[in-house]
């Protein structure tokens, strides 16, 4: 309990430093989701990619962009 409190407190104190990091990760996730929704076909089912993008922080969207996208011609 005490530990989580200290962690939360530390994050709050350092918010101006950490905020850009969170924003960039969020942007990456949103771009991946937009791309996924607009894609006509992907490698593997779409719901799987949604889970990967949402739950694997940073790595998920990158993996989706690199292998999940089928380039629409």
């Amino acid at each position: 309990m005490l530990l989580t409190q200290t962690v939360i407190q530390t994050i709050e104190e350092n918010l101006p430093v950490l905020l850009p990091l969170f924003i960039i990760q969020l942007l990456l996730m949103i771009t991946a989701l937009v791309s996924l929704i607009r894609a006509t076909s992907t490698r593997g089912p779409k719901w799987m990619w949604i889970i990967i993008i949402l739950f694997l922080n940073t790595i998920g969207p990158i993996v989706y962009f690199i292998i999940g996208r089928r380039d629409d011609l």
């Binding site: 960039i24 990456l28 771009t31 991946a32 791309s35 990158i62 962009f65 996208r69 380039d71």
Partner: peptide, 11 residues
């Protein structure tokens, strides 16, 4: 169109 211009800079 591939969103490369967004995700590569972010990464």
């Amino acid at each position: 169109r591939n969103f490369k211009w967004i995700w590569v800079p972010l990464v």
